[in-house]
Simulated assay, not measured.
Amino acid sequence: MELEQLRKDMVAAMKAKDKARKDSISSLVSAVKKAAIDEGCRDDIPAELVDRVILKELKSVKEQIDTCPDTRADLKAEYQARYDVISEYAPALMSEEQVRRYITEKFSEIVATKNKGQIMKAVMAELKGKADGKVINQVVGELCK
């Protein structure tokens, strides 16, 4: 995802007077800009950084939904609406089968050692932002048995 696309969608939401959507996209744009400044690339923001920030924000909103008390239905609905908007921009993550195939093909030598820590260290750096960490951990655990 490119930052410019997020900006265009934010402008479209403003023109459509869709405040909830505009606020959600605006928070994404702000988070991407902050991450870019932190990483020293604010003038040329790579799509990989945008995707990583989107996934982080998605996870954060999911936690808000999960921890919100049932008595606060209004707040929960607001979080859910934000989650729905952010999930539209989230990159597709690799499935469990794709992760298994990728690890066995690319890291066959390390997998042969059955050293879970060593495998995770190598694999997590490669798959960060491409696959869910829980799925990676589960696949590596199965490969080490």
Rank of each mutant, 00 (worst) to 15 (best):
Lys34Phe: 07
Asp43Tyr: 11
Arg21Met: 12
Arg21Asn: 04
Thr67His: 14
Gln64Ser: 12
Tyr83Arg: 08
Ala36Thr: 05
Asp66Arg: 12
Arg82Glu: 05
Val85Gly: 01
Val85Pro: 09
Arg82Thr: 05
Ile37Lys: 15
Val50Met: 06
Arg82Ile: 02
Val53Lys: 02
Ser26Phe: 14
Val29Thr: 04
Asp51Tyr: 06
Pro69Ser: 01
Asp70Asn: 06
Asp84Trp: 00
Asp84Cys: 00
Glu48Asn: 13
Asp51Ala: 07
Glu78His: 12
Glu39Ile: 04
Glu39Met: 05
Arg21His: 02
Leu58His: 12
Lys76Gln: 03
Asp44Met: 08
Asp23Leu: 05
Ile25Thr: 02
Ser26Met: 10
Leu58Thr: 08
Pro46Tyr: 06
Val53Ala: 00
Arg21Cys: 08
Ala73Leu: 07
Glu63Ser: 15
Ala47Leu: 06
Ile25Leu: 00
Ser60Gly: 11
Thr67Ile: 10
Val61Tyr: 11
Glu57Phe: 10
Glu63Gln: 11
Leu58Ile: 06
Leu58Val: 00
Cys68Lys: 09
Ala47Asn: 08
Lys22Phe: 08
Glu63Gly: 15
Asp84Tyr: 00
Asp43Thr: 10
Arg82His: 03
Ile37His: 09
Glu57Ser: 13
Asp44Cys: 00
Pro69Gly: 03
Leu28Asp: 03
Lys76Asn: 04
Thr67Ala: 13
Val29Glu: 00
Lys33Val: 11
Arg52Tyr: 04
Ser30Leu: 12
Val53Ser: 02
Lys62Gly: 10
Gln80Lys: 12
Leu75Val: 14
Ile25Glu: 01
Lys34Gln: 10
Asp44His: 09
Tyr83Val: 03
Lys22Glu: 10
Gly40Gln: 01
Lys56Gly: 12
Ile54Thr: 10
Ile37Phe: 09
Lys34Thr: 14
Arg52Phe: 05
Lys59Trp: 03
Val50Ala: 01
Leu58Ser: 13
Ile54Ala: 05
Glu39Asn: 08
Asp38Ile: 03
Lys34Cys: 06
Asp38Lys: 13
Ala47Gly: 06
Thr67Ser: 15
Asp43Gln: 12
Ser60Gln: 11
Lys56Tyr: 06
Ser27Ile: 03
Leu58Phe: 07
Leu75Ile: 13
Lys22Ser: 09
Asp23Gly: 00
Ile25Tyr: 04
Ser60Met: 13
Glu78Thr: 10
Glu39Lys: 13
Ile37Gln: 11
Arg82Ala: 03
Arg82Asp: 01
Thr71Pro: 04
Ala35Leu: 02
Ala73Met: 07
Thr71Val: 14
Lys76Val: 06
Arg72Lys: 15
Ser60Asp: 12
Asp74Ala: 06
Glu57Leu: 10
Ala77Ser: 09
Gln64Lys: 15
Ala81Arg: 10
Asp70Cys: 02
Asp66His: 07
Cys68Trp: 03
Tyr83Glu: 07
Glu63Met: 15
Ser26Glu: 11
Gln80Thr: 15
Val85Ile: 15
Ile37Arg: 14
Ala35Pro: 09
Ile37Gly: 11
Val29Leu: 01
Val53Trp: 04
Leu58Pro: 08
Ile65Asp: 04
Ile37Leu: 12
Val61Phe: 08
Tyr83Trp: 12
Pro69Arg: 07
Leu49Asn: 02
Lys56Ala: 09
Val32Glu: 01
Lys59Ser: 14
Pro46Ser: 04
Leu55Pro: 07
Ile54Val: 14
Gly40Pro: 00
Thr71Met: 13
Glu78Cys: 09
Asp66Met: 09
